[in-house]
């Protein structure tokens, strides 16, 4: 396997992991399958597009065309995407969590509401911006590195590094902060969490905003490779959901491993001459279905060795 393929696979895996980990955390701690994750993705992309479009003249005026200008633009892009993602999380909290979280059928109803939100948002974007693709400024530039005889594009490297950084930050937050501990406690036993003085309403908001921000980050990173369009969130949503399921919903490490697996699988299928790019989705689904039929709890089921 050559290095280019590995980098490509890592690139895919990084984006998938951002989506899947968000979906997985949200499901196990709050009990919402967030179908609006794709909408969050698209909204963040558009927010970044609008904001960078507005900031470009300002930044050009302040820094000219120096390296500082690129840096400021990158900051503006990432920050706007993150903030838009978090705000989407807030909207989901207000619509799909707060009114119904102690009513019957909460999980199914939350799924339906987020699904409705997804459709409504995507259609609104289509209506307002039209189906045209929008290109965002390339914050990593267009160059390539020569490493061990293969070329690595800057945006690929940037995506991998950025995603790894964000994932590491998220995991560290979950692991070491007090709020993260509360989230993990709620993921594992909601009733026990209540007995430990952890409020569901107070924990759900940061989790929803965090997962929204993760989707925003994924949008910002993916915008370096492909264009932003109203429906650009659908494929990441479906991929994120499938990978979260493959990882065994609720298992963060399972989702990470699943993202890596699927990333490599897609890269390999795309590279094999007689299969090619057309069979990527096909192959991934078949792989996931096969794994789930053999191990119904996904990869997380293999990792979890605690007693029932």
């Amino acid at each position: 396997m050559d290095l280019g393929l590995v980098v490509y696979a890592m690139n895919l895996a990084a984006i998938y992991a951002l989506m899947a980990v968000g979906i997985s955390i949200l499901w196990s701690s709050v009990g919402v399958i967030n179908m609006a994750h794709g909408a969050t993705f698209a909204v963040s992309g558009y927010a970044a597009w609008i904001f960078t479009g507005a900031m470009k003249p300002v930044i050009a005026g302040a820094f000219g065309t120096s390296a500082m200008a690129t840096l400021a633009l990158a900051g503006a892009l990432v920050a706007s995407a993150l903030i838009a993602g978090a705000l989407c999380g807030l909207v989901i909290y207000l619509l799909a969590f707060l009114p119904i979280h102690d009513k019957p059928n909460f999980q199914v109803r939350a799924l339906i509401i987020t699904l409705g939100l997804n459709i409504a948002t995507v259609q609104t974007l289509l209506w307002y911006f039209g189906p045209r693709n929008q290109g965002l400024p390339k914050i990593f530039g267009f160059g390539r590195w020569e490493v061990l005889g293969t070329r690595i594009r800057y945006d690929q490297a940037g995506t991998i590094i950025g995603a790894t950084l964000i994932m590491a930050l998220t995991l560290a937050w979950l692991r070491y902060s007090r709020k993260g501990l509360e989230v993990r406690a709620m993921m594992q036993n909601a009733e026990g969490a209540a007995y430990s003085g952890i409020s569901r309403q107070a924990t759900a908001l940061p989790v929803l905003m965090l997962t929204g921000a993760l989707a925003g980050m994924a949008a910002a990173l993916l915008s370096q490779t492909i264009f932003v369009s109203p429906t650009s969130g659908t494929i990441p949503l479906v991929k994120g959901l499938t990978i979260a399921l493959l990882g065994g919903l609720g298992s963060v490490s399972g989702a990470l491993i699943a993202a890596l697996l699927v990333g490599f699988l897609e890269a390999i299928i795309g590279a094999v001459p007689f299969l090619g790019q057309r069979y990527v989705l096909f192959g991934t689904f078949i792989f996931i279905i096969a794994v789930l039929v053999i191990r119904p709890r996904g990869i997380g089921g293999l990792l979890d060795d605690t007693r029932e």
């Binding site: 501990l181 594992q188 969490a193 430990s196 003085g197 605690t306 007693r307």
Partner: peptide, 18 residues
């Protein structure tokens, strides 16, 4: 025992310190 199976004993006790 409403316990959190995936947390260590120390983390579990920390949960109680609300």
């Amino acid at each position: 025992d409403a316990i959190f199976p995936g947390l260590s004993v120390r983390k579990h006790l920390e949960c109680g310190a609300h």
